[in-house]
């Protein structure tokens, strides 16, 4: 791992379970990653793979029935899993902030948006006048036209994209250094998606933010991320730089993800592969590799033992038995190979 940049946030061997009426759900089973100053880390995975849960644990807003079973989250030397609610309120917003998926529901419908932005400042004892001034500056920064007028309006008077801008303004209000974006564009129209992505990228550059970007959309990942972590069934199965993941993926699950993503060059004759089967029921996490039943390249050992993280390069790791020296050599599927070739070609041109 290159260490030209300090890791400000480290998640080590995190295990989270939920108590439900049906039993214990193992949502996160040993997640491990770090986040460096000024970078954008994308966490990719299907719904239910534990990406949101991991990040909620970082901000300390897990629901009451969640337990952190094992592992820690180190932020600037302090272990967040040991933090009390009171300590969390100190860092939430001012150090680590979060944006949610649905801007329609993440704003309080009966409070003026200006007040909602100000609130983040007011709880830190900033005077009303100054908070108002800062709120308007923030609204300008996130690209809201006519902020003085918009300040006095309610969320229902805003479009989806505008609301997401307000949510971003709220998240930025207290100058955090880590911003977690939980599928911030999923609920938006495609054209608006691009604007919001650009906004996040621009803000990230301006403020030297470290961003964790949760998504299931690989297109978005390619657009914003420096590094990518692929999650499956509560574990990170592969991580590396965005180039490594897109051009040299090692885990069969990453292959499947990449193949199932259509792009401009996908002609109708091309095979658009779907991933067969469904993710495992996390009430009863399977023995061995959770992806094995859906994996065309599953080996006997996949059903018996969980694969360790194999190092591919200094920045690139993958948890698959295929990287074991004894494993048969497997080539990337042809479809994907073709895809990558086309991509590279396009880049060269």
């Amino acid at each position: 791992m290159t260490t030209n940049n300090e890791a400000i946030l480290q998640v080590n061997d995190l295990h989270i379970t939920f108590n439900t009426f049906s039993g214990k759900v193992h949502a996160v089973r040993g997640v491990q990653f770090d986040l460096r100053k000024g970078e954008t880390l994308a966490i990719v995975g299907e719904s239910g793979s534990g990406k949101s849960v991991t990040n909620k644990a970082i901000v300390g807003i897990l629901s009451k029935n969640a337990n952190i079973e094992r592992g820690n989250i180190i932020y600037r030397g302090a272990d967040l899993t040991q933090y009390s609610e009171r300590q969390f309120t100190q860092i939430r917003g001012s150090k680590i902030s979060m944006i949610f998926q649905d801007p329609m529901s993440s704003l309080n419908p009966i409070m003026k948006v200006g007040k909602q932005i100000m609130e983040a400042l007011r709880v830190r004892n900033i005077s009303k006048a100054e908070a108002r001034q800062r709120a308007i500056e923030l609204m300008i920064a996130v690209g809201i036209p006519d902020p003085e007028k918009r300040f006095e309006q309610y969320p229902f008077q805003f479009s989806g994209g505008m609301r997401q801008r307000i949510v971003i303004a709220i998240a930025l209000a207290c100058d955090p250094e880590v911003l977690i974006c939980d599928e911030p564009t999923t609920a938006l129209d495609v054209t608006i998606q691009a604007q919001i992505l650009d906004l996040i990228k621009q803000i990230q550059k301006e403020r030297d933010l470290s961003v964790i970007f949760i998504t299931h959309d690989l297109g978005v990942v390619a657009n914003v991320a420096d590094r990518v972590a692929v999650m499956y069934a509560g574990k990170i199965v592969e991580y590396g730089t965005v180039d490594e993941i897109f051009y040299n993926p090692k885990h069969p699950y990453t292959w499947s993800l990449l193949v199932s993503m259509p792009d401009l060059d996908t002609s109708s004759s091309d095979e658009l592969l779907v991933i067969p089967g469904t993710p495992p029921n996390m009430l009863y996490p399977p023995k061995g590799d959770a992806f094995a039943p859906r994996n065309r390249y599953a080996m006997r050992i996949d059903y018996e033992e969980d694969p360790p993280m194999y190092r591919v390069s200094d920045t690139h790791y993958a948890a698959t038995w295929l990287l074991h020296p004894n494993a048969p050599k497997v080539e990337i599927p042809d479809v994907l190979k073709k895809r990558i070739a086309q991509q590279t070609e396009r880049l060269v041109r």
């Binding site: 901000v59 807003i61 609610e85 009171r86 309120t89 939430r92 917003g93 001012s94 902030s97 979060m98 949610f100 998926q101 649905d102 529901s105 993440s106 704003l107 309080n108 419908p109 009966i110 409070m111 609130e119 983040a120 709880v123 830190r124 949510v167 709220i170 998240a171 209000a173 207290c174």
Partner: peptide
């Protein structure tokens, strides 16, 4: 359980503040 309660907390309000300012007020309507 609403999203804006989560957002209220991530912007630095304590559980108590968020409940008082957002949840209870809204559930009165």
């Amino acid at each position: 359980n609403s999203d804006y309660m989560l957002l209220a907390r991530t912007k630095g309000l304590s559980q108590m503040q968020a409940t008082l300012r957002h949840a209870i007020r809204n559930s009165f309507i």
